[in-house]
Simulated scan of single mutants.
Amino acid sequence: MSARPRLRSTLLRSLLLAAALLTLAACSTLNAVNAYLGNDVAFTAPQLQQSLNRNFPKRYEKLGGLVAVTLMNPRLTIPDDGDRLRLDFDIALAALGSRPSGRFTLTSALRYDAASQGLHLRDPRIDYVDVPQLGGVMTGASRELLNAWLSDYANQEPVYRFDNSLLDKLGSRRIGSTQIEHGRVVVHLDR
């Protein structure tokens, strides 16, 4: 075989191989997009944690600032086998000159809110409070302030806000239920 036909043969094989690789790459990209926009969109704990980190610390006041609570350092975990995520916070209280601090834990399901285009706490519950200077428990005014914050936060502020690129990809699809499944937050889409 002369050099010219051998070169053509090698060039043709290279072109066929390149075309096959491009086809495979396109198929895998298409499958990734279809999986992403299948019947659900999933979020991991690190994605939600990054959103929380941008929004804390927060300070809430009552009685003209005589009683205040500052929430810092949110730590989010999603259980593999539960239906509620867990949020741990460091807390600093300020009331009538005293400044006790500690931590607390809440658990909650999540819901999608179309107005904020984000995931909000649903049925949050304070599971644990540890404020050593107060004997490990909170006073009535401090607990009332923390519960008021929790109610306000659940209604007003998302734990995670959908970004424009995700909303563009969702297009006209409607958000259905939001569930915690296998260590992820899964937003099911309606057709």
Rank of each mutant, 00 (worst) to 15 (best):
F104V: 02
S51F: 02
S172V: 09
A45Y: 05
L93K: 06
D90N: 07
R84T: 00
P5D: 02
L146F: 04
A115M: 11
L167K: 07
R13T: 11
G65Y: 06
L17I: 11
N39F: 01
A3P: 07
Y160V: 05
S108C: 12
V186S: 01
S28L: 15
S116K: 11
H120T: 06
L189S: 02
G183F: 14
R191I: 07
V129W: 12
P79W: 09
L22V: 11
A68L: 03
P46V: 03
D113E: 15
A26H: 11
A109I: 08
V159A: 06
L146H: 05
L121W: 10
R161M: 00
S2L: 04
E181T: 07
L66P: 00
P5T: 01
R6G: 01
G136T: 10
L87H: 00
A42M: 05
A94K: 13
Q179N: 09
T23L: 11
A3W: 14
D81I: 10
F89P: 01
A114F: 14
Q117C: 02
G118C: 06
D168T: 04
V33N: 14
G183V: 10
D163P: 02
A42D: 07
H188A: 01
T44E: 03
G102A: 03
R143Y: 15
L134E: 04
E181C: 01
G135W: 07
Q133C: 00
L12S: 00
E144L: 08
S108P: 11
A26C: 10
G183A: 10
S14T: 12
S51Y: 04
